[in-house]
Computed example of a mutant assay.
Amino acid sequence: MNEHTSQRTARRLRMVRYATTATAAAGLALTAMAPTAASAAPRPDVVQQRLDALVQKDGMPAALATVKGRDGRSRTYTAGVGDLATGSRVPVDGQIRAGSNTKTFTAVVVLQLVAEGKVALDASVDTYLPGLVRGDGIDGRHITVRQLLQHTSGLPDYMDAPALSDFTTIQYRYFEPRELLDGALAQKAHFAPGTRWEYSNTNYLVAGLLIQKVTGRPYGEEVTKRVIDRIGLRHTYVPATGETALREPHPHGYLNTGPDAPLIDYTEMDSSMAWSAGAVVSTNTDLNTFYGALLAGRLLPAAQLAQMRTTVPAELLGPGVRYGLGIQSRPLSCGGLVWGHGGTSVSYRTRGGVTEDGRAVDIAVTTIPEAPAAQHMTDAVDAALCR
């Protein structure tokens, strides 16, 4: 998300911005757990092998996944330990902080408002939030709603503000959305709107404010009503103000502040720092359900879903990656694309998505992986969908 004082940690936290943006303490012995009896495969399973490798070779405290195959069946997997202090098992399909998968939820709500005629994609931000977005080279009169959702606005990332420079000091600190926005507006615009693509959490912070202004209701209530309840995501929610603990069984998540430093348990946190850009809590299975319902047209009319899937190159996220309106596509080694988003919070990372024919995978780890472990997560998604 943001830079730490050390150069190595700064690199790690920059990855959080890209969401697509820490390794376990040295010498920690972690053993992989087999799938539950109900989901165990009769022969060595490529997904289990990949999760085991993320734990045993890449040092992730835990890894967990849900995979939906061509047959429509879902299987769940776990590896590692759920709590480093106790050595407890990883809960099957446990809750995790979904990070920037939240952006897709936010984009869906905005596009629903577009379908209702309450928002226009090519109208300026100032149309809905007059005078709010102003700064050095920043003018909301020249930034469109589409540019917010597609990360082509040029707005600097509020995660680069000094207030978010050290996660160890703000684990339980509450941030107002306006305070976060002010941290972005204190910086200089990165480029003229519409001239480049660059991932910025500020875009979705502003989108959340737009949702509240247009609907007259809190952001979390709108996401719950329009998305979570609509498709029955029983283990997904937007944390309430002041809520710091996860509600259901979950693996613990960990912040790494350096290669020789002990991991910090960052499971509990005030997620207001992420808000409409990254606060949603979910499970692997619920995320598969969400992206499957989205691509199947259960959340958006055809016209708005087509707009969402109109993409621009986003090579910073990986070779061949393209970004639409709150969703990205990534080529698969076996042909075709996987559609999803992925997310990184302070202490969890998820990768996954769905294919046109309904295959789906979501994989989570419980600390932020550096290279090459980060690439190994992407490779595991590809292996699960192409097996």
Rank of each mutant, 00 (worst) to 15 (best):
A53K: 04
Q147G: 01
R322D: 13
T106Y: 01
A364T: 13
P162M: 09
Q187F: 05
R43G: 12
E248A: 15
M377K: 04
P91W: 11
T20A: 10
A107G: 05
I143N: 10
G183M: 06
D45R: 08
A10F: 02
K68E: 15
V381C: 09
T215I: 11
T102I: 05
R178D: 15
V114W: 03
G232D: 12
T36F: 06
E356H: 12
L305E: 05
D270H: 05
H341N: 11
L148I: 13
S276Q: 07
T289W: 01
T20P: 00
T5E: 09
P162H: 08
T5C: 05
T76G: 02
A163I: 13
R298G: 15
A25W: 01
A37V: 08
V125Y: 01
T350V: 10
N101Y: 01
A163K: 02
K68H: 06
V92I: 14
F167L: 14
Q328W: 00
L294P: 00
L129Y: 01
L129F: 05
P130H: 14
T86H: 07
D139T: 08
A29K: 08
L13Q: 11
N203G: 11
S200L: 03
T195N: 04
N288C: 15
S347G: 08
R141C: 00
A10M: 08
S271D: 14
A384V: 12
Y158S: 06
D382L: 01
G343E: 14
N284G: 07
P177E: 12
V125H: 01
L294C: 05
Q171N: 06
A123H: 14
T102G: 04
R234V: 15
L294N: 08
I96D: 04
H250D: 09
M269Y: 04
L54I: 03
A373W: 01
L263H: 05
A189Q: 11
A302Q: 10
S100T: 14
L180N: 04
E243N: 05
Y323S: 07
L148N: 11
P239Y: 12
A371Y: 15
Y291R: 08
R97K: 12
G326N: 06
G353S: 07
P130N: 14
V206N: 06
Y18N: 11
T86E: 07
T36Y: 06
V109P: 00
A22C: 04
A374G: 10
K103Q: 14
N2M: 12
G27Q: 06
F191P: 02
P193C: 03
L325W: 04
A186L: 13
T23F: 02
L305Q: 06
P262W: 03
P177C: 12
A373T: 03
L28P: 01
T66Y: 05
D45W: 03
